[in-house]
Amino acid sequence: MENKTLRMMLSLAMVLALAVMAVSFLSYRSARKDLSALKADLETSTAAWKATNEKKLAVQKELKAAKNDLREANLTIEESEEKAASLEEEIKTLEEEIASLKK
């Protein structure tokens, strides 16, 4: 009777052990699959942001050059306007002086 009980308990333990091993193994495989998928997504995402970054840097370089040219053009306009005003005044004075000399 004792042997029979012991045998039943051992059988139950073996079945449980096998079931736990099977479930654990399946869970492990699933986790590995998830990890592989995540790694692939990470690679894709990293490649995507690096490519975008390169494109962005190229456009930003072009933008910076255009902004510099624009700033330079604005500065030229401003300086030239000031200089032109001063020259016009000087020319006016010279013209007056010449007119008085001609009289």
Binding site: A66, D69, L70, E72, A73, N74, T76, I77, S80, E81, K83, A84, L87, E88, E90, I91, L94
Partner: peptide, 22 residues
Amino acid sequence: LKEKQPLAEEAAQKVTDLKARR
């Protein structure tokens, strides 16, 4: 920039002309 560049060139040319006139 496309709008300002000719203006800048024009302004610079005006200064050159005024200097010649002076």
